[in-house]
Design a protein around this nucleic acid. Structure first.
Length: 572
DNA sequence: GCCGTTTTCGGCCCGACTGTTTTCAGTCG
């Protein structure tokens, strides 16, 4: 699939246009098209062959022609032209906070600055303060922005943001006069990674709240501080924004700062259609200018005749239309989870015994767990020999005889070998209650080979679930080269479930693939993949992904009660 | 550049903060 290449080119083109001080809506148009291609489920080449490029939202005549040109020739002439006109290095200046296209164009014109190094030199030599609308503070801010850029961390995983949010909230909650306080943004939408953290609050003493926020021990730098908002940098170079708002506007503000941007743009258009202008402060009636205030977010959506949209699905992928038609999905809830089908134990490389895992499962309110240790090919981690697996099956059977409450299922995470065969015989796999198959070795193989390995595992009637199907590790390892559409099609055909691995570094399948899988009738299994009892609570990250993927209780294998699950496991 | 049960032209979300001004342009989210 060339979707990613195409969207990257469109993103770059939009940056180049921005530097040319092009019409800003043109810039936005290219970004929108790039995002559409990025999240397109079909192969863009296929869509192009069918002549349906312009059916893609945000793609019109001009962009469709450029995509076609790229797919045909591997180049886009307009792109090459503008690239040759733009000094290299100007685009990297856009990444500095506070530097927009106008400023960069002026610096280029007046001081011939074409790189971050040029800019740093000019600022240090005090040449920038002589320019219009610039001064000593501008120079200082530029140098700071450069420093931050050089030690910038990319987006942080959700589980890293969580303790920071918890600490900020618990500190500020002690203050007098505080009303509401909550984190918005991609954190509230439970995206797998978070850029900045947005905190929203109401308070009788805004000034106290702002100054307490700026003085928190974790704060390393204060970037801005006004009467109603402040921005700080805390540990790990994470930016945290605090905004204080009138209680009567809390609903509109929370809505606005939860995003996403695309969701909000569309929501404001819905408001306009209905004769209102929606801002973070109010809903204003256009005919008489009357302002309506909503302290609660639910009321904002209700005022537009919409059902309340869960934050996790506010990405403008159909949720607004669904809310207008009152046909939003009833999203899966953590409470719906009845068990965990992929847990490792001390039989192999896990750190907790089956007994400890069972006790934890009970505490979590589960009905069942499946102990799925590795197979022999994972040499270093002590994968179980066939004999040991048989022994484990017998021991677990004995445990179940004497236990009430939690049913322990015998399972395995069997390796899909480099040649596509499985690491245990079919006879042995047939003795397991749950067979989770996954790929650990030879991950560098070509797309065709990897896809074939996964499909042959799917076609093995003993295999129930494909674990961490793409193999990606957030921020560390890209997904395998694979044809996911073909894999999902095979899973649908064979009645094999796909995993949402809830390990916060994996989250694999991700939200989008999970939604695609649901769409073609595949069951999803949300598994902790815990290697110790304490990590079984990672389940909630998997539920976040499931909710973002529009999953409902009925789509999820381990939201079934035990009897229903056992019926499903013996489905063939 | 895209888009359209008010459409093929004229919109495209909108307000806070900053640094420089002395009324505002640029950037950000």
């Amino acid at each position: 699939m060339k979707n990613r290449e195409v969207s990257q080119h469109l993103y770059q083109l939009s940056e180049l246009l921005e530097l040319q001080a092009e019409n800003k809506y043109k810039v936005v148009a290219y970004q929108k098209a790039a995002r559409s291609i990025e999240s397109l489920k079909e192969d863009v080449e296929h869509v192009c062959r069918e002549g349906l490029l312009q059916d893609i939202p945000g793609v019109g005549k001009a962009i469709a022609e450029k995509i076609e040109e790229y797919l045909r020739t591997g180049r886009i002439k307009a792109f090459d032209d503008i690239l040759s006109r733009t000094p290299k290095g100007l685009t990297e200046l856009l990444q500095l906070s506070g530097m927009g296209p106008k400023t960069i164009a002026m610096l280029h014109e007046k001081l011939n600055i074409t790189s971050i190094d040029d800019l740093e030199k000019a600022a240090k030599e005090h040449r920038i303060r002589r320019l219009p609308r610039m001064g000593p503070t501008s120079e200082k801010n530029i140098l700071k922005a450069i420093e931050r850029h050089r030690m910038r961390s990319t987006r942080i995983p959700l589980y890293v943001a969580e303790p920071i949010v918890d600490e900020v909230l618990s500190r500020l909650k002690e203050l007098d006069g505080l009303g509401n306080i909550t984190a918005g943004g991609s954190y509230r939408r439970r995206k797998e990674t978070v850029g900045d953290i947005d905190i929203l609050a109401t308070s009788a003493n805004p000034a106290d709240l702002i100054s307490a926020f700026a003085r928190m021990p974790m704060v390393e730098e204060v970037l801005g501080k006004g009467p109603t908002k402040a921005t700080v940098i805390v540990r790990d170079n994470v930016q945290v924004d605090l905004r204080i708002v009138e209680p009567r506007s809390y609903g509109t503000v929370l809505q606005y700062f939860t995003g996403s941007k695309d969701h909000n743009v569309k929501l404001r258009n819905v408001a306009l259609d209905k004769g209102y202008s929606l801002s973070e402060y109010s809903l204003k009636r256009l005919d008489d200018g009357q302002e309506l205030f909503y302290p609660r977010e639910e009321e904002v959506y209700a005022a537009l005749d919409m059902d309340h949209i869960p934050p996790e699905i506010r990405e403008d992928t159909g949720e607004i239309e669904a809310a207008l038609d009152h046909r939003l999905p009833k999203l899966l809830d953590l409470k719906d989870i009845r068990g965990d089908l992929h847990i490792h134990s001390t039989w192999a490389d896990g750190r907790s015994s089956v007994d400890e895992l069972t006790r934890t499962a009970k505490r979590l309110g589960y009905e069942y767990i499946a102990i799925c240790d590795h197979s022999p090919s994972i040499g270093l981690t002590g994968g179980l020999s066939p004999e040991r697996l048989e022994q484990k099956i017998d021991v677990i059977a004995a445990i179940n005889d004497g236990r009430e409450g939690i049913t322990v299922l015998s399972g395995t995470e069997v390796d899909i070998r480099a040649d596509g065969t499985l690491d245990y015989s079919d006879d042995l796999l047939a003795r397991c209650d749950v067979v989770v198959a996954s790929l650990h070795m030879a991950q560098q193989q070509k797309e065709r080979i990897i896809t074939g390995r996964l499909i042959s595992a799917i076609e093995n009637r003993n295999v129930d679930i494909i674990a961490h199907p793409t193999g990606r590790i957030i921020g560390k390892r890209e997904p395998y080269e694979m044809d996911m559409a073909a894999v999902l099609e095979a899973a649908a055909r064979n009645g094999t479930a796909m995993e949402i691995n809830a390990h916060p570094n994996r989250l694999d399948l991700n939200d989008r693939w999970a939604r695609t899988a649901k769409g073609i009738g595949i069951k999803l299994s949300i598994d902790s993949d815990a290697h110790q009892a304490a990590h079984m609570t990672a389940m909630r990250y998997g539920v976040d992904v499931a909710r973002r993927g529009w999953l409902e209780k009925g789509d999820v294998l381990n939201a079934m009660g035990l009897q229903e699950l056992l019926r499903w496991l013996s489905r063939l």
